[in-house]
Design a protein around this nucleic acid. Structure first.
Length: 301
DNA sequence: CTATAAACCTGCTGGC
DNA sequence: TGCCAGCAGGTTTATA
């Protein structure tokens, strides 16, 4: 459900609303939502820390948690330059992946009862903040995962994740180099997070449609013109998605449980049988690597 | 290495 | 109206 655009939108909301807030209590209601650490250790690891930054990598939400300032820092051999916190034992990164049905919600005290938000009964993890609000991880299907790691563990965590498509460094040439080693269908390759980060089924279809590339084209056969069009299309569909709060036809919500408005801006996804906006031919649906794939058979070549 | 499938879970939709 | 099979935006792991 949530792809790069949906995660980025929520990251920006969360950054604006929770930076500077301290976590005063945490409760894990579904143990398997926590990855790599025991639930009680996870709870103990976040309580007392302050949310200092919220970011995103691929489809992962990154919440930086710092221990409160200590009055006297312990004697330290290395000088504190104030920059990299990679070895700071007081900093942890809360990593959240919402997978298919997860949402991160910010609830007021009167919207919370016994760990369940009034507008959503699927609370798996609950964080109480020092202003009385609750950060709630809600996930009906329980596929999503939360992890708590030290900052220096991030490189390993993301070792297999490809480049960020919204970075300046994401050029047509770089995309071309990444696609060159893949002979499979371009749709399937775009879904491979090690090739490009953050694309899911919706935005992959939208990007291919706007670039006029058939989803079954072999990834290593795109021309330079097509690579440029695809690179531009990927960025364009993602940026539109972020601005509009993401696509909600199922579960994706913003932190106030509000629906995203980007469904109205999709041009091909789930438009099966409807006329192509460019040429009028009916949009077709096929299955690629088990995923519903929508395209115009007349103008995607 | 590529490729397909299964597993993880529950809710929603469409067909009968 | 009611029931049930099938499907859903993601990722990991197993199998061929």
């Amino acid at each position: 459900m949530p792809e790069l655009a949906e995660v980025e939108y929520v990251a920006r909301q969360l950054r604006a609303e929770t930076r500077g807030r301290r976590i005063v209590a945490a409760h894990v209601y579904w143990a398997r939502s926590i990855q790599g650490i025991a639930p009680d250790a996870f709870e103990a690891g976040v309580v007392g820390r302050v949310i200092t930054e919220v970011g995103r990598r691929a489809k992962y939400l990154l919440v930086t948690l710092q221990a409160e300032q200590r009055e006297q820092a312990p004697a330290s051999a290395h000088e504190d330059t104030g920059d990299a916190r990679a070895d700071d034992p007081d900093t942890r990164i809360l990593i959240i992946h919402r997978r298919m049905s997860g949402n991160v919600l910010l609830a007021k005290p009167d919207e919370i009862a016994d760990g369940v938000t009034a507008f959503d009964p699927y609370t798996r993890v609950d964080f109480a903040l020092d202003d009385g609000r609750h950060l709630v991880y809600s996930d009906p299907r329980k596929f999503g995962r939360l992890a708590l790691v030290a900052p220096d563990a991030l490189p390993d965590f993301f070792a297999a994740i490809g480049p960020e498509p919204l970075d300046d460094a994401f050029t047509a040439a770089r995309l071309g180099r990444r696609l060159a080693s893949h002979n499979g269908a371009i749709k399937a390759v775009l879904l491979d997070q090690s090739v490009v980060a953050g694309l899911g089924n919706i935005y992959a279809d939208e990007a291919l449609y706007r670039a006029r590339i058939h989803p079954l084209r072999h990834a290593n056969t795109l021309t330079e013109t097509e690579l440029q069009a695809l690179r531009d299309a990927i960025r364009s569909v993602l940026e539109t998605g972020i601005v509009n709060g993401g696509v909600t036809f199922g579960r994706h919500r913003g932190i106030y449980n509000e629906a995203g408005a980007n469904l109205a801006h999709l041009e091909v996804y789930r438009h099966t049988g409807q006329p192509c906006l460019r040429c009028g031919a009916p949009i077709q649906r096929i299955v690629v690597v088990g995923r519903g794939t929508h395209f115009c058979p007349a103008c995607q070549l």
